[in-house]
Design a protein around this nucleic acid. Structure first.
Length: 295
DNA sequence: CTATCTGTTCTGAC
DNA sequence: TGTCAGAACAGATA
């Protein structure tokens, strides 16, 4: 799923692990996933990490970058060097001692979904897994990266300029678009996907099928506030783990425990308005809302 | 078994 | 230009 909060959580986890490390090897197990010349980043040092919308950049000290899009099932999991312990009874990883997820996240790495493996100079590794193989990793120059960041995405929700006025202005050109499709358009707002669009619309009590031309200035303002509130909560929770998402340490997020409408069809409205959550399709995407209190 | 669903986004037809 | 179906892929679920 990775939307903004999930990618940001991964970025924060990676940042503290790989900054100042040198990439010593890139193993490409699924060529379609890795685009560009890995030689441009190999044997160079990681300068920083950066997120824009749902993409994550690893910025190197030589003006080249790795840019990742995880699409729906991508994972970026960092692992410390495996100690060659004499006691082979030691568990390989401590990360999942607390529970058994319903998925093979704790399987040995690499596994059948691993597309690319990066090795660093401390023998730690970064595994890019992707079950459905929609995700990609590209090698880009600083210039190409800047161009993508500047031209392919709208405002970040945490930008000072992300206001009702900004959205009203954008909505003028596409008055007939339904608000949910508007909110998930990456060229308008960067980073909102299916889960958080449903959640923020519930928080703002606005129906996902409203036309953007029929939304009042007050309602746009509510959506701005709800967007920031929901995304902040989701980042605090380390993202939503619905099925495949894990953070950079391979752990689950906690936001799934705070979702109010996403995949809650048939349940009573959490606002206790007396309605029930419905699932409809908007723009080809499953959409969950309370038809009674979202207008 | 078949049919339908899934977090993203890109392309091509109209 | 805007909108829509379908594609890219590999499952899980009913």
């Amino acid at each position: 799923m990775p939307e903004l909060p999930e990618v940001e959580t991964i970025r924060r986890g990676l940042e503290k692990r790989i900054v100042d490390r040198t990439i010593t090897d890139i193993e490409i197990r699924y060529p379609k996933t890795f685009q560009g010349n890995g030689g441009k980043v190999a044997n160079n040092r990681v300068k920083s990490t950066e997120r824009r919308a749902k993409v994550l950049a690893i910025r190197m000290n030589n003006s080249y970058n790795l840019l990742f899009h995880l699409k729906m099932t991508g994972q970026l999991i960092w692992r410390a060097a495996q100690l060659r312990s004499s006691s082979s009874a030691e568990p390989r990883n401590q990360d999942f001692s607390g529970g058994h997820p319903d998925h093979n996240w704790h399987a040995d790495l690499p596994n059948s979904t691993t597309a690319v493996v990066f090795t660093f100079d401390d023998d730690s590794k970064l595994f890019f897994n992707d079950l459905r193989k929609f995700g990609w990793c590209k090698v880009l120059s600083d210039e190409d990266l800047s161009k993508i960041f500047d031209t392919e995405y709208g405002l970040e929700p945490f930008d000072q300029n992300f206001t009702a006025e900004y959205l009203i202005n954008k909505a003028k050109r596409i008055p007939n678009r339904k608000i949910k499709q508007f909110l998930t358009d990456q060229t308008i707002i960067a980073g909102i996907g299916n889960i958080y669009a449903d959640e923020l619309l519930f928080d703002a009590r606005i129906s996902p099928v409203r036309k953007v031309s029929e939304i009042s200035e007050r309602e746009w303002g509510k959506m701005v506030k709800s967007t920031i509130k929901i995304l902040n909560l989701a980042i605090d929770q380390g993202g939503t783990t619905d099925s495949d998402y894990v953070n950079a340490d391979g752990g689950k997020g906690g936001m799934q425990n705070y979702l109010k409408v996403y995949r809650k069809a048939g349940l009573d409205c959490p606002a206790k308005c007396g309605g029930k959550i419905e699932r409809i399709v908007v723009g080809g995407r499953g959409t969950h809302f309370c038809p009674r209190c979202q207008n």
